[in-house]
Design a protein around this nucleic acid. Structure first.
Lengths: 340, 340
DNA sequence: TCCGCCAGAGTAAACGTTTACGTTGACGAG
DNA sequence: CTCGTCAACGTAAACGTTTACTCTGGCGGA
């Protein structure tokens, strides 16, 4: 019920003009005497005055807020990422609006409008769907609103800054690991090939196989949708009537790897002794839970924090040395791939 | 680089005053002719004008933003909660600032200041630590800034609205379930008793035992810290030199239950055949992973969405029918408790 | 003594809205 | 014809800041 204290209150309390108060609040270069500064500082401290950021933003046109647009916080990869973003924001005096789109184009659009209305200084954007292009981005482009993509490949905006994960390199690393264990007949369950990262991972797999002079059997390459049951179903397609024609299986993510694991076990195969399994994501769970899947870790926190740094640099008008930063993959060997 | 379109632009484009434009934008009760409305609407549509929310907020003093303060989004319970909050916010035209405090008092304070500076309309607050009271809340109280606690018991502000989980009832439900399976010697690993919810859960356990006329052996009650390893360590204290003196074990959360599980298995006991185990939280993981723990589900999403509804009601000036809403517990039987 | 300069401070416009209040003109009643 | 009424709009103040510009007085140099 008590009205908030404004700069006017401080001014009249100190017997100076609001301009003077404003100067000491922003400790502007000069123009205020030592003792005046002292006096004003003291009063501000005493009454607990804090400038209204809305009013500041009205005139400076910067809000020190950013929009973070992701499909769903509940996905552990994104909650890692969100935390990375928020930490860096906070360290730099920014606040962050969280927006969940479920990967739906209309929600993406809605949030873009909302965030523009709220005059965010920049936008951090991810989505699972990178087929459809959202023309609203062009507005941001025109307005010079800083933008940073996270693992999103948009042909229409090739110059837009972004942080990426080295999907191809990760797949390569994992494939080489499996090959080095002696496997030659390797099945591959890809993610939906409508997404760029599924294509890149598959490409990493294929090229590594070829580089090692290993023949690729088209019958061992199937497409899933990144969900548990699609991994399960994929095994049905991979397994013919007789003995399995492969000794190892790589899935485009851990969820599908787990689904495949379940299917294999149910069909009487032992993992990893009969068939080795590997995945992507390093989805984590308490150490006690089994099975563990050898996997490629995607550094969610790092992608978030680094993307935010890039965004902040842009907002500060600093030219970016590199507009696209790609993060290397790391292998997490958890024993689900064995020598043959 | 292009300057954003303002209400002035629309006004001059239509040859009317900005007041008239403002009226049609907010479709104020009356005072504008039909064809004028049409004309202005059309121009607004054509040029894509959207009012600047900062400017609106300056004068109306409402921002349609809220602050959401939690310990860490990466904790699955909180990411569920966050999603619940954000969904309800979005449905009601609010945006939400996400703040991670790691449960640290100084970060809580920092965010409270930040959010006040940003003129949020309301605050949704959780923390893991409910021993220390933050005096900054009193300011909110004085300012009549709507506040809603989430599972936080603050003696100093008994009237503050909040949403709660029925910890005691949940523990009761779980204990009764275990008792009904025939167990009488039941060990209990509580969370840190500095937190209210650990105390409440323990109390639910104790009272249910007593209500059933089952004697409580003080040696079977130990305190952990909600972490995996504290569950593991607790088993060492519970297990004497000879045979186990209990047939079932209830932990204050699933993580400790998993730690206890591991310890028991390593010591050669079979779960659940030798010893049954139950926990709290319903931490979820892909269906394939083992073991599963019979548990009490804490409805994170619901707590978040309901808390947000309560907050919005307050912000709209609607008096709350109930200031404190407590959510019932639900049992998730996953087979880790068996009959004896 | 006079002038110029500069530190220290104030004045007022501006940011993009909302809204209380004022103005205008058409129209109907008397 | 006159007056009042009301719909349809305009005017201008206000929100809490920042900042370009102006003002004042003291001091040093010629």
């Amino acid at each position: 019920m008590t009205e908030p204290i404004t700069i006017k209150d401080i001014a009249s309390l100190c017997g100076v003009s609001i301009a003077t108060v404003s100067r000491v609040v922003n400790n502007s270069p000069k123009g205020v005497g030592e003792k005046t500064i002292e006096r004003i500082r003291k009063v501000i401290e005493e009454v607990g005055y804090r400038p209204n950021r809305l009013a500041q933003s009205m005139i400076t046109k910067v809000t020190h807020t950013i929009g973070l647009v992701i499909p769903d916080v509940r996905n552990p990869f994104f909650s890692e990422l969100v935390r990375g973003v928020e930490d860096v924001c906070n360290d730099n005096g920014y606040s962050c609006f969280l927006c969940n789109t479920d990967g739906k184009l209309d929600k993406e659009n809605e949030y873009i409008d909302i965030l523009r209305d709220r005059v965010v200084d920049g936008l951090l954007f991810t989505t699972q769907n990178d087929k459809e292009f959202n023309p609203a981005f062009l507005d941001f482009y025109k307005n010079n609103t800083p933008l940073c993509f996270i693992e999103r490949y948009v042909d229409e905006l090739p110059e837009t800054p972004g942080v990426f994960f080295d999907n191809e390199g990760g797949a390569s690393l994992l494939t080489q690991f499996v090959l080095d264990k002696g496997h030659r007949r390797i099945a591959y369950i890809s993610g939906p090939l409508s997404t760029m990262n599924a294509r890149m991972r598959k490409s990493g797999f294929m090229s590594t196989m070829q580089r090692n002079g290993v023949e690729i059997d088209a019958a061992l390459i199937v497409e899933g949708n990144y969900r548990l049951d699609s991994g399960y179903a994929a095994v049905d397609r991979l397994l013919g009537p007789g003995k399995p024609t492969f000794t190892a299986l790589i899935a485009g993510n851990d969820l599908m790897a787990l689904g495949a694991y379940q299917a294999l076990v149910e069909r009487g195969y032992e993992v990893p002794n009969d068939i080795s399994i590997a995945g992507f994501d390093n989805i984590t769970y308490p150490a006690v839970l089994r099975p563990l899947i050898t996997t490629i870790e995607i550094p969610g926190y790092k992608l978030g924090s680094c993307g935010t740094h890039m965004l902040i640099a842009q907002m500060k008008g600093q030219p970016l040395a590199v507009t696209r930063q790609v993060f290397a993959a790391a292998l997490r060997d958890k024993g689900s791939v064995v020598k043959i």
